[in-house]
Computed example of a mutant assay.
Amino acid sequence: MSGRYRLTSVDAVEEEGSWLFTVRDQHGNDEEFFLVPCDDPDRPAVEAWLNRCTHESQRLYREGVGAIVRDGGVVCPKHGSIFDTCTGYCDNGEAADTTLPDVEIAVDGGQVYLVDDDVTFLRAGPSRDDDDDDGPSSTSHLQF
């Protein structure tokens, strides 16, 4: 990808709580990323994280639900690990001491742009991979 691609607005991410999009990486793989608000004044207003828990590749953003965000963290629906919305770092649970992979974005004039030269924007929303639509196979007793 060269240049930048407008994804959505900061307002839309803040209103919805999260926003999903799909890219294609340099190896031809489709990957889902999601945007979440970041409340750190020293960072961009939103951040973009890979839609997979670092522990067992559980989707963190699910269609119809979005990403579960509590107290500045994205909660894994399978084991309850919590990833900081601003840094992607997890300090608890099964995914402790790991960080979610990111994709480079920029925020300009209230708009969010994909600016990562290693990926190509494909679509807003999920990948066309429908083999994981049954939701998490939860082993926790988390309730949201």
Results as ranks from 00 to 15, higher is better:
R52E: 15
R52M: 15
C53D: 07
T54G: 10
H55N: 15
E56L: 15
E56Q: 14
S57D: 13
S57P: 09
S57V: 15
Q58E: 15
Q58W: 03
R59L: 13
R59W: 07
Y61S: 12
Y61M: 06
Y61N: 09
Y61T: 12
R62C: 13
R62P: 08
G64L: 06
G64P: 06
V65D: 11
V65E: 12
V65K: 09
G66R: 01
G66F: 02
A67V: 14
I68Q: 09
I68E: 11
I68G: 02
G72D: 06
G73F: 08
G73L: 09
V74I: 15
V74E: 05
C76A: 08
C76R: 00
C76D: 00
K78G: 03
H79S: 03
H79I: 11
S81C: 03
S81Q: 05
I82T: 09
D84L: 02
T87D: 04
C90Y: 02
N92P: 10
N92I: 08
N92L: 11
A95S: 04
A96N: 10
A96L: 14
A96I: 06
D97I: 12
T98P: 07
T98H: 05
T99Q: 07
L100D: 02
L100I: 02
L100T: 00
L100W: 03
P101W: 00
V103W: 04
E104I: 13
I105E: 02
A106V: 12
V107C: 08
D108T: 00
G110A: 08
Q111L: 09
Q111G: 04
Y113S: 04
V115E: 11
V115H: 00
D117P: 15
D117F: 04
D117K: 07
D118G: 05
